[in-house]
Computed example of a mutant assay.
Amino acid sequence: MRKSKVIMTVGGIIVLIIFALIASSVIDDLSVPGQKYEKNGIKFNYPDTWTEAKSVAEGSIGAVACTSEPATSVVIQQVPSSFGADIYNASEFNKKYLVQSGNYIELDYKNSSINNQSVLMQRYITNEGDGSQKEHVATWIKMKDNKIYVLLFSTPVEKYEHQRVNYDLIAGTFKLQQDNDDNIINQISSSVQNAINKYINN
């Protein structure tokens, strides 16, 4: 009789842990501002003042743009394997084409991190055909699916400081669609295993 009560207690604790983990994940998602983009295996949040856009860029799997300033956009591309196996090689491969165009002014090129994930950030300016200039930030990142992605932010130079915070929202929330599910499953599995181990050892 006592053993069955212990089993029920352990079972109850496990159920509570599962609900707590799921609730925590849902609350985290709800607390992030903006609209949610969830398509083509990726997801991220973007500002309420932006809208989904179409992109013809090679490997494009997502794009959003500022509604009042369509020249400001973020395009997410899955980088072809021919660009290289790591973010440095891929960005260098792409940089060669930009330099050859004679239309490339490099501002910054550095290693950084987003949510504890290593990234390579490339900031540069291009001269447009109409005589204007655009500022870009390309963030190169290798995800858990072993594929390289680039998040390309583009905006008129004079809008950069104002719009950069919107890019930070997108880059800071960028994930694979499977990420949350995998994390919850791993957390639940670990919690269940810990509860079982405690029961067995008592």
Rank of each mutant, 00 (worst) to 15 (best):
M121W: 08
L120A: 03
N146Q: 06
Y149W: 09
V137F: 01
N115M: 10
I148D: 02
D145P: 03
D145T: 10
Y124S: 00
D130M: 00
K134G: 13
M143K: 11
L151G: 00
K144E: 14
S118Q: 09
A138M: 15
M121V: 13
D145R: 00
E128K: 11
K147I: 11
N127V: 09
H136L: 11
S118C: 05
G131Q: 01
Q133A: 03
T126A: 04
A138P: 07
N127T: 06
T139N: 08
L152H: 12
E128Y: 09
N116E: 15
H136G: 02
N146W: 05
Y124R: 02
N115W: 08
T126L: 04
D130G: 02
D145W: 08
N146P: 10
W140K: 03
Q133Y: 01
S118G: 00
T126V: 01
H136A: 05
V137E: 13
H136F: 12
I148W: 02
Q117T: 10
G129D: 07
Q122T: 01
N127F: 09
Y149A: 12
I114W: 07
Q122V: 14
R123I: 14
K144A: 15
L152C: 07
K147L: 15
N115A: 12
W140M: 06
L120E: 05
T126E: 09
E128S: 02
K134L: 14
Q122K: 14
I114P: 00
Q133P: 06
Y124H: 01
G131F: 03
H136Y: 12
V150Q: 13
Q133T: 10
I141V: 13
T126M: 15
H136R: 05
V150T: 10
I141H: 01
T139A: 04
M143S: 07
N127Q: 12
E135R: 04
I141M: 14
I125H: 03
K144W: 07
I125N: 08
S118F: 06
Q122A: 06
K147Y: 14
I125F: 02
S132R: 09
Q133M: 09
L120Q: 03
L152S: 08
N116G: 10
I141K: 08
D145M: 00
V119Q: 11
L151P: 04
A138H: 15
K144F: 09
Q117M: 07
I141G: 01
D130H: 01
L120K: 03
I114F: 00
V150Y: 11
G131N: 03
G131D: 00
N116I: 02
Q133N: 13
Q117Y: 05
I148P: 00
V137Q: 07
